[in-house]
Simulated assay, not measured.
Amino acid sequence: MTDGRPCKVCNFTRQKSYGVIVPSLDDLKKKGCEFLGVSPSAPVTVVLEGDGTIVEDQAYFLCLPFNTKFMLLHDKETWAPARKIDGGTAWMARESVVLEADAVDSCIAEAPWWNLALQLKQDLTSIILMSEGDLQSLVEAPCSELASALGFQEKKAEELQETLQRVLDRREEERQSKELLQLYLKAVENEGRQQGATSPSSQDGAGDVDMPDGLEADSASEFMSRTLMVLKGKTSPETRLSTEDLQAVVSRGLEAMQQVLGWDAGRTAALLQACEAELSTRLQQIQAMQSISGTQQDDGKPRQGAGTATQGSS
């Protein structure tokens, strides 16, 4: 095509960019939609990628220099300037000092939350199918960046992050409830195995709570990676830890926890007291459930004295 003009076309995220040769603005729209996966019948707006100027006039299109980069916008998409991001930022470990615009867009696309945000833009109900890791990455995403990806105002994006945090908190509460129920069932199972071999020594310790073997195991690597994040990053962490983690925290003592957390003695002592109180509450709940279970079992058994008297009379 001898009268064609070489130019570039990209989508609103700059994640996809293609080079095309077209003779007119209408042909640019058609080819751009084809390359970017947009329906040919969908209305699109052509803007300059650099400053967002809308290009609607064929004569203006022909006056632009070769290799001009255009952006195609459809539906509710809006133009936004390319972001230049310091390569040393924490969420993108890059060695370069300043990234070029196209490289920045590629890096944003690699961020865990970016594709999730685009997925939410298409269907907000997809939240219920996301893992906790996905939800956490959206909560920790920069609010302004998330708003841009979703096409929201920043206030709305902040409200969405608060909602996702509540979803995470509810899942954590459900997990803790499940763990408490499993702990109770295991304690009942252990008690059932010991009923046939009762001894005076075991009777002396009848008021003690049989704790699962798992509570006695304490892996330093697991403690560091899983429990410390909860202790340092959330309010009322004692309510968010499993019973096993609470046992591990309490067993370490003040000095060890102070060294691990890097806190002063007063703050560490307050945390340990809160963990001890929470652990005590849970164990009391287990004891209460065991007591109820034992009472129900005793009510269903015939009393030995009554059985002996019956045999003697016969």
Rank of each mutant, 00 (worst) to 15 (best):
I21T: 13
D169M: 09
Q153E: 06
F35D: 01
I286T: 07
D105V: 01
D57H: 00
A248S: 09
S17G: 01
V209F: 15
V47Y: 02
S17W: 11
D3Y: 02
D51Y: 06
A277C: 03
R240M: 15
D123N: 15
M224W: 13
S242I: 07
F152M: 08
R83T: 04
K121V: 00
S219C: 12
E49G: 10
P43V: 12
Q284L: 10
L64V: 05
G207I: 14
L160H: 06
L271Y: 07
A93L: 06
K186Q: 13
Q136P: 12
E238T: 03
K234W: 14
T53I: 04
T295C: 11
Y18T: 01
A147V: 09
L120E: 09
G312L: 13
T89A: 11
Q273N: 11
R303H: 11
L231C: 04
K31H: 11
G253P: 13
S293L: 12
R83F: 04
D123W: 13
A309F: 12
A101C: 01
G312M: 08
R193I: 02
Y18E: 05
G294W: 15
S106N: 01
T239W: 07
A103N: 02
G233Y: 07
N11R: 06
F152A: 01
L231E: 05
E172K: 05
Q182R: 04
Q284Y: 09
E145L: 13
M211Y: 12
A147K: 13
I292E: 12
M224T: 10
D102N: 06
T68C: 10
Q290D: 03
S280Q: 12
R14G: 01
S177H: 09
W79N: 03
C33R: 08
S221E: 15
A117V: 10
Q290W: 05
L62F: 02
E110A: 07
L99Y: 03
E162D: 14
S199F: 00
L129H: 15
E255P: 00
D105Q: 08
V167W: 03
C33V: 01
E154I: 13
T295I: 12
C33W: 02
T78S: 06
G294D: 08
T53P: 00
Q15P: 00
G233I: 05
G196R: 12
E189I: 10
F223T: 04
C63F: 08
A141Q: 07
S41P: 00
N67W: 14
G262P: 09
R171P: 01
D57L: 00
Q176T: 07
A111D: 07
L164E: 14
R171Q: 13
Q287C: 11
E244A: 10
L183S: 05
A288N: 10
L246E: 01
A270Q: 12
H74L: 05
E158Q: 13
Q182P: 03
L168N: 02
K156N: 01
E179N: 03
C143D: 02
L48N: 03
G19S: 14
S314K: 05
